[in-house]
């Protein structure tokens, strides 16, 4: 039943209900998510939450990249998101190893406890 399969896949159906969604809609969602991540990174003091907020900003960048890629009908945006994911995974591994190390030193996840590092 090839017809059934094609018509139920997202590629075939979802663009039809894409009416009335502009690029602005997606970029606005991306901007709001980025700003929330930024605020979280600045205000929260828990090291883990701070890194979680950077992941939130990565997500926002991904939404913008894919929306632009969709607008220009180009796969480069999606390919770039793959590399963003790669960097995010590498960053998470390293940052969390550092967090574990710092936690063992001071038994605390407080970012301000390491203010001496600023020299």
């Amino acid at each position: 039943m090839p017809d059934l399969v094609v018509s139920t896949l997202a590629q075939a159906d979802f663009p039809e209900v894409m009416h009335a969604i502009t690029l602005y809609h997606y970029l606005l969602v991306s901007a709001v998510m980025f700003c929330l991540g930024l605020i979280g990174f600045v205000t929260r003091r828990n090291l883990i939450i701070m890194f979680l907020c950077t992941e939130l900003m990565f997500q926002a960048a991904g939404i913008a990249l894919i929306a632009f890629g969709r607008f220009y009908l180009d796969y480069t945006g999606q390919v770039f998101v793959i590399f963003v994911l790669t960097v995010a995974a590498a960053e998470a591994a390293l940052a969390l190893a550092l967090v574990v190390l710092l936690f063992r030193r001071k038994e605390s996840l407080d970012g301000t406890a390491w203010a001496v590092l600023k020299g």
Binding site: T22, L28, A31, A67
Partner: peptide, 25 residues
């Protein structure tokens, strides 16, 4: 600071307000 940035960003994003192609494939 974050929401001032958001206000500026959301204004700048409105340039052109382009519609997405209905059927990319």
């Amino acid at each position: 600071a974050g929401f001032a940035l958001l206000a500026a960003l959301s204004t700048m994003l409105g340039r052109g307000v382009p519609v997405l192609t209905v059927d990319p494939s």
